[in-house]
């Protein structure tokens, strides 16, 4: 009797985590982007190489480095017209990278932000949509200071500060990107 129950419990314990398996970053990010739009959209993906001077200026302003020399960039099209952008980068949590993504409209205002992958055992509450909602509507000139403009999370201090800076960093990059020909040239070419 005990053995039977144990076997069932064991089976469930092994099965449950397997069902929760995540996909590769790009795929999972694209699913998140599509979920933000009611109508069908097309996505154009690039690994955007950061111009060194822009990278340096933004890093100096925010006091946080970009994770690499490139970020993931999606241009979002609906019926051939550009309706927004998504940028994906990583910040360091206590010891592991936190992969996050910010969606912008054509005016570089944040329409939503998401944690695509969280790898630490603590501080994961930065993934909560209710916390992320605080960034919606902000742009490069908004306040991102934790305590003044962004509410913190008890037990996730390091992640909260890192992600808030990271989102501000992408907002500054988005403000620059919307002025760039590389994006406007593609506007009608999904």
């Amino acid at each position: 009797m005990l053995f039977n129950t144990m076997r069932t419990k064991l089976f469930m314990l092994i099965l449950c985590p397997l069902l929760l398996w995540g996909g590769p970053i790009q795929k999972s990010a694209e699913t998140t982007i599509r979920n933000q739009f009611k109508q069908a959209i097309t996505l154009q993906f690039d690994k955007y190489q950061l111009p060194p001077d822009i990278k340096k200026d933004i890093e100096k302003e925010v006091h946080q480095s970009f994770f690499m020399d490139q970020v993931y960039l999606w241009q979002i099209f609906r019926q051939d017209s550009l309706v927004g952008y998504a940028l994906l980068d990583n910040v360091r949590g206590k010891s592991l990278p936190i992969t996050f993504m910010v969606l912008f409209n054509g005016r570089a205002e944040i329409t939503s932000s998401h944690i695509v992958k969280y790898r630490e055992s603590i501080g994961g509450a930065v993934s909560n949509p209710q916390w992320q909602k605080q960034f919606t509507g902000k742009d490069a000139s908004s306040g991102f200071s934790v305590g003044d403009h962004i509410d913190g999370i008890s037990g996730a201090t390091i992640s909260v500060h890192a992600v808030s800076k990271g989102i501000r960093k992408l907002a500054l990059l988005a403000r620059y990107l919307i002025t760039q020909p590389i994006l406007s040239a593609n506007e009608n070419q999904p």
Binding site: A125, Q130, G152, I153
Partner: peptide
């Protein structure tokens, strides 16, 4: 068990 679903709250 903890709940942190609301910003600033635990």
């Amino acid at each position: 068990l903890d709940y942190r679903g609301l910003p600033g709250t635990r």
